[in-house]
C-alpha cells in the first residue's frame, strides 16, 4: 500500500536496529530517548505542522502526564496503568480547558500565551513540594508491566517506545489523509476561508490541541516509569523550545520531519561530546546552518530540491502567488482589503 510505504519502512528500521546492534548503547539507551522525543515531536507536529498553531508550552503536558504517574503510583499506590490513564485525562482535560481562550490568539500572542502556560505548570511542579517533591522530584517510580511481563530493561523500553511511536505515526498519517486533517491544513493555510468552507475552526483547533496534549501526556507517563524518577527540570521552558526546534528542524508539516528532528536533536549532543567545551557552540552552529540552507527544514528542503530536479525536466507555469506558507506565517487577512 503506497500510502503507508514510509510507515512500513519505519517498522522495519525499528525492528532491524536492535537486532543488528544488540545491546548497543546508542540503540537501546540514546535510541529509546530519541523515540520518546519523536513521540513528543510527532504529537506537537499535529498542532504546529498540520494546523499551524505554535505552542511553546508543550513540555507542560509532558510533565502533567509524568507527574500524574509518579504521584499516583508512589504516594497512593495506584496501579500504573490506571495512573497512566489518569495522566491522559489530566493532560487532555487541561488542554481542553485552556484551548478555547488560548487558540483565539494568533502568531506571537499564541506563542506568548502557551509560553506562559508552560512556565506556570513548571512553577507549580517546583512550588507544590508536598505533592510533587519540589525541585528534588519524585523517585522510586515502579516500572510498568504488560501481561505480567515487566518492562524493566533498556531493550524492553526500546520496544514499548517503538511500538508507541509506530501507532502514533500511523494515526498521524491517517489523520493527514482525512476530512479532519484537511480541515487542519485549511486552518493553517487560510483560516477565514476555512470557516467559509463550513469548518468550525475553534472546535478543530481545540481537538488537535487536546490530541497533541494527549500524546505528550502519554509520553510523560512512559518517561516517568522508564526513568523511575521525575523532576521539574525535565519539563521546563527549554524542553518546550527543544520540541519546537525538533519539529521545525526536521521540516514542519511532515511527520517524518518531526521524527528526523527528534533523532538529530537527541543524537547530535551525544556525538558532539568529543568536542568537550565546544559542544554547545558546534551544536548551535549546526542548527543555524541547517535553518539557513534548508529553511523549510530537512525533509521540506530535500523535498523541494527533489521537486526542482523533477521540475527541470518538465517545466511548469511559475507560481505567481508567492511561496507556499509552509511555516508559521499567518495567512493574510481577507477582511482588510475591504474599502470601508
Amino acid at each position: 500500500m503506497k500510502r503507508l510505504r514510509g510507515w512500513w519502512l519505519l517498522v522495519a528500521l525499528l525492528i532491524a536496529l536492535p537486532l543488528l546492534f544488540p545491546g548497543n548503547y546508542y540503540v537501546t539507551v540514546v535510541g529509546a530517548s530519541a523515540l520518546l522525543h519523536a513521540i513528543l515531536a510527532v504529537g506537537l507536529n499535529l498542532l504546529m505542522g498540520y494546523a499551524g498553531q505554535i505552542s511553546l508550552g508543550h513540555a507542560a503536558f509532558f510533565g502533567l502526564g509524568a507527574y500524574s504517574s509518579a504521584i499516583l503510583t508512589t504516594r497512593y499506590g495506584v496501579n500504573p496503568w490506571l495512573a497512566l490513564g489518569a495522566g491522559l485525562v489530566l493532560a487532555g482535560g487541561v488542554a481542553y480547558l485552556i484551548a478555547r481562550p488560548v487558540l483565539r490568539l494568533k502568531g506571537h500572542y499564541l506563542a506568548m500565551a502557551t509560553l506562559g502556560f508552560g512556565i506556570i505548570v513548571h512553577i507549580l511542579l517546583v512550588q507544590t513540594g508536598g505533592l510533587t517533591g519540589g525541585p528534588d522530584g519524585i523517585g522510586g517510580i515502579p516500572t510498568l508491566s504488560l501481561f505480567g511481563w515487566a518492562i524493566d530493561s533498556d531493550a524492553r523500553w526500546y520496544g514499548v517506545l517503538a511500538a508507541t511511536l509506530l501507532i502514533l505515526v500511523l494515526g498521524a498519517l491517517n489523520l493527514m489523509d482525512s476530512r479532519s486533517g484537511r480541515a487542519l491544513g485549511a486552518i493553517h493555510g487560510a483560516e477565514v476561508a476555512a470557516g467559509m468552507m463550513g469548518i468550525d475552526t475553534a472546535a478543530a483547533k481545540t481537538a488537535v490541541f487536546v490530541l497533541a496534549a494527549l500524546t505528550a501526556g502519554l509520553a510523560g507517563s512512559l518517561f516517568a516509569h522508564q526513568q523511575a524518577f521525575v523532576s521539574p527540570d525535565s519539563f521546563n521552558f527549554f524542553v518546550s523550545i527543544e520540541l519546537v526546534t525538533m519539529v521545525v528542524l526536521g521540516g514542519i508539516a511532515s511527520t517524518w520531519g518531526a521524527i528526523l528532528g527528534a533523532v538529530i536533536l537527541t543524537f547530535l549532543p551525544e556525538l558532539l561530546v568529543v568536542f568537550e567545551d565546544y559542544e554547545v557552540l558546534i551544536f548551535g552552529a549546526i542548527l543555524m546552518l541547517i535553518m539557513i540552507f534548508l529553511p523549510q527544514g530537512i525533509v521540506g528542503g530535500l523535498a523541494d530540491l527533489w521537486a526542482r530536479r523533477q521540475g527541470a525536466a518538465a517545466p511548469t507555469d511559475p507560481p505567481k502567488a508567492g511561496p507556499a506558507p509552509r511555516g508559521l506565517a499567518p495567512a493574510s487577512d481577507p477582511v482588510s482589503q475591504d474599502a470601508a
Binding site: N174, L175, S178, R179, S180, G181, R182, A183, G185, A186, H188, G189, A190, V192, A193, A194, M196, M197, G198, I199, A207, V208, L211, A253, A321, G322, A324, P325, R326, A331, S332, P334, Q337
Partner: peptide, 29 residues
C-alpha cells in the same frame, strides 16, 4: 484577494470545499 490553502494540493483544496457535506470526525480519521 485569493484565500487559497497554498499548503494543500489543488484536489485537497476542493475536497476542503466539500467539508460540510461530510460528517466523519477525528477519531474515525
Amino acid at each position: 484577494n485569493l484565500q487559497i490553502f497554498f499548503n494543500l494540493s489543488v484536489l485537497e483544496n476542493v475536497m476542503v470545499g466539500a467539508h460540510a457535506r461530510g460528517c466523519q470526525g477525528m477519531v474515525a480519521a
